[in-house]
């Protein structure tokens, strides 16, 4: 039964991922990305990492995808309708990708035999112990991540905030 859940989410995620990178319609790509992220959250729940699943839903599906949709809409309106979303000639990329999968998948497959899933007591996979780890063991990384977010915020403001007086092409957005 558990396997069926995993395969369902895995195939959904992969199928949507393929749509994300091949669709010629950019809105369809974003929508597929949303479904893919949600399916990934399902996989995290299946792997008994509910907190990661929730984060995935909130930040990826809820945050990043929405951000992308906003960006796409902004660009689409300003560009007057359709945004070109074509792909380059995929010859080289296909070789690279097949090379990667051809190396990586068999290596992973053979490195880990058919081991059963070890049981997890609900307590240790919970939020409490994760928070404990985050705050006790990874304090510097935690602080660095906060600086990282501050930098991203500064950057977004610097690059996109409009000056009060004048602005370049007057057509678009906000």
């Amino acid at each position: 039964m558990g396997s069926v859940v995993f395969y369902f989410f895995a195939f959904a995620a992969l199928a949507c991922a393929v749509i994300v990178v091949t669709s010629r319609h950019i809105v369809r790509s974003v929508a597929a990305l949303f479904v893919c992220m949600a399916a990934m959250a399902g996989i995290y729940f299946f792997l008994s990492a509910p907190f990661i699943g929730a984060m995935q839903l909130m930040i990826y599906a809820g945050g990043i995808t929405v951000l992308l949709i906003f960006a796409v809409m902004l660009v689409r309106r300003a560009a007057g309708g359709q945004v070109e979303h074509a792909s380059r000639n995929p010859g080289g990329a296909i070789v690279v990708v097949i090379g990667f999968v051809g190396w990586m998948a068999p290596a992973a497959w053979m490195a880990f035999g058919p081991r059963q899933m070890p049981p997890v007591e609900p307590r240790v996979a919970g939020v409490e112990s994760l928070a404990d780890d985050l705050i006790r063991h990874y304090v510097p990384a935690f602080e660095i991540a906060s600086v990282l977010l501050l930098v991203a915020m500064i950057g977004a403001v610097v690059l996109t905030l409009r000056a009060k007086q004048r602005e370049g092409p007057p057509t678009d957005d906000e």
Binding site: L14, H85, N89, V97, V101
Partner: peptide, 18 residues
């Protein structure tokens, strides 16, 4: 690995920065 490969394919072939 498959998901990573699909992403890699997209990175290599997409023309649109988004």
């Amino acid at each position: 690995a498959l998901l990573f490969a699909v992403g890699l394919y997209g990175v290599l072939t997409r023309r649109n920065a988004i």
